[in-house]
Nucleic acid binder design. Structure first.
Lengths: 342, 342
DNA sequence: TGTATTTATACAATCGTTTGTATTAAAATT
DNA sequence: AATTTTAATACAAACGATTGTATAAATACA
């Protein structure tokens, strides 16, 4: 019923607890016969080390904390898979928390991770997060952290692994243009988030490159839920009859639009071509399958974790901060390829 | 750079650390003026309690551990959402781990949670897990745990919150029959798993209730991937031309079948009605939207967490173990309702 | 005024480890 | 045989909080 400690083992074997500790940690300061006795007794009693005590003493936890907006989003669960693979290889534990896009919860989580003395933190901030003040505590105490995908732009000097949203958007829109689309709508997200700003910028740049004038009426901002996609598509069809493509800043909004357009008998991609962003699993299941940008979740997870582990291991805490940028992959499916195009 | 402790605060204010501790915990044994001084200084120095030390001393962590096969499965992420809601209300923290369906990893996770002295554990076991031996350590030390959805059937007496797969399948098939379906195919899963056995049994029972003879040729077992669904549908169309409905033991296989049937111009639900199982998000996004059984992930999460919190709070550890069984909800969508039926 | 009570704080032990230093006995070296 | 070295273990102080008990000063009561 009570939890077994090294002291009990020590008492039973009539040796000191420090010897038991060293035996369990396979130190060469203890005789191999004693080691065997200790190991046997520990096994027998079902001994499990108290990591609270151990971590407290050693001032490290061999654990990294991960903070994401939602674990259910495919990009984030893939990233977590990558993080766990890398961390477990290095014999680190991983604890996962989700902010549910709330800044308050994110703040609480960071404080809690810090209070539990994790060795480092990987974070992708919530939509509500505008400043990095809740991370100051980490800087002050020298706890290394790495942003992935979403970062705090007010923090001039930080470690981050990002997706090149600009390049992704540019490629997506270029693809649409090469498929003979001329009036291309962009569904954009909250402009507080860097990523949506960059996707919008990539959209504009692509238009410019191909000599298509930018029309602000074709950019609509929302929270990019499926319902938003439907609603926005509905509004557009009424006011802008000539549109021939939609580039949505996420898949959900793209799918919402697609459903609405199908319901009013628009053909996709013949009448209106659609491209999403994120490569959610659903994007290849719907019909027509959705062209989208894969954000390399697993890859990002691995890379950012490896960067964090580097920071943790070199205690030289003034090592240069790093920014790594990955280009998303355009996955071309059926929703964007008008026949007769190249 | 160094982490702030109560001792530093004590030294600066020239008081004892025990007073600082009591001040921070708002004890009435310390003068309100002193409290204010302490709080102000703590804030100023960016003090954050060391929970390793605090939990060690108090022999509790206010944390519950959650073990699931994969966080990316919608059912599990919903369950986690339910767990977190309930836990946070009760001021408990939640740490999430995924076994990735590996028994070895599950074992490691359980040991690690125990070593970190979580107050209780919620677990849905991996596909590979056949016995409960890796949970003995919890029983021995009196750490309460609750199974949800998937449990260890070798453990005679345990706390668990389960889905009534039999009833769900029965309801799904009854629904098809009431929609004038007579030759109903069942896509079943690995018979090693309780859940698939029960779904098959529910299917049989429904047929029996409505006086439809059971035909073993209409039951096909696979791993229920999307490809399996396609393949099985293809085979069936060739050999059993009279079929008018499919009840698949998961959504993926149902969607695979649906895609194949659409590709050969079968009308759904007019020619063939389809029902899935699990209510994956994609099931309402595809067309026609898929009738399926919702497994009440959020609900299960809340209920099992509440059960666990009860066990944690009554230290009387010989309180009766509980089994709670929830009936899944049939979500009727477009894929199963033949027109002209009731 | 002297004693009892209250209030505010200090002291010290504790949680379960780890780890530097001290101790003792045995082995190796001279 | 005397001394040094090595090996194996014991002792004790940490890590940072909590908490029971002791103490001192201030207030209340007689």
């Amino acid at each position: 019923m009570k939890k077994v400690t090294i002291h009990e083992i020590a008492e039973i074997l009539n040796i000191d607890s420090s010897t038991v500790s060293r035996a369990l940690n396979d130190s060469d300061r203890v005789n191999s016969k004693t080691k065997k006795k200790v190991l046997k007794k520990a096994e027998e009693l079902g001994y499990r080390p108290n990591l609270l005590a151990s971590n407290l003493r050693q001032n490290k936890s061999n654990t990294i904390g991960v903070v994401v907006p939602r674990i259910s989003r495919s990009f984030f669960s893939s990233a977590i898979a990558g993080i766990e693979e890398m961390a477990h290889n290095a014999d680190f534990n991983v604890v996962i928390s989700q902010s549910l896009e709330k800044h308050k919860r994110e703040q609480k989580i960071v404080n809690n991770l810090f209070s539990n003395r994790v060795d480092g933190i990987l974070i992708s901030v919530s939509m509500e997060t505008e400043t990095s003040s809740h991370l100051e505590i980490l800087e002050r105490a020298g706890v290394p952290f790495v942003f992935f995908d979403r970062h705090c732009s007010d923090m001039r000097n930080s470690n981050k692994v990002l997706i090149d949203d600009f390049a992704g958007a540019y490629e997506a829109v270029s693809h649409l243009i090469r498929n003979n689309c001329k009036r291309i709508v962009h569904f954009s997200g909250p402009q507080t988030l860097e990523i949506y700003k960059n996707r919008l910028a990539g959209y504009k740049k692509a238009l410019e490159s191909y000599g298509i004038p930018f029309d602000p009426k074709l950019v609509i901002t929302s929270n990019l839920m499926q319902e938003d996609g439907k609603r926005m598509a509905g509004k557009l069809i009424k006011t802008e009859s000539a549109i021939d493509a939609i580039f949505a800043a996420n898949d959900l909004a793209a799918i919402g639009a697609m459903k609405y357009l199908k319901s009013i008998d628009k053909k996709i991609p013949e009448d209106i071509a659609i491209v999403g962003f994120s490569n959610e699993p659903v994007s290849e299941m719907i019909e027509p399958s959705l062209t989208t940008l894969d954000q390399l979740g697993f890859e990002i997870g691995k890379i950012s974790c490896s960067l964090l582990l580097d920071k943790i291991q070199v205690k030289d805490n003034e090592s240069e901060n790093k920014t790594i940028i990955l280009k998303p992959n355009l996955i071309i499916r059926d929703s964007s390829q008008k026949k007769g195009s190249l």
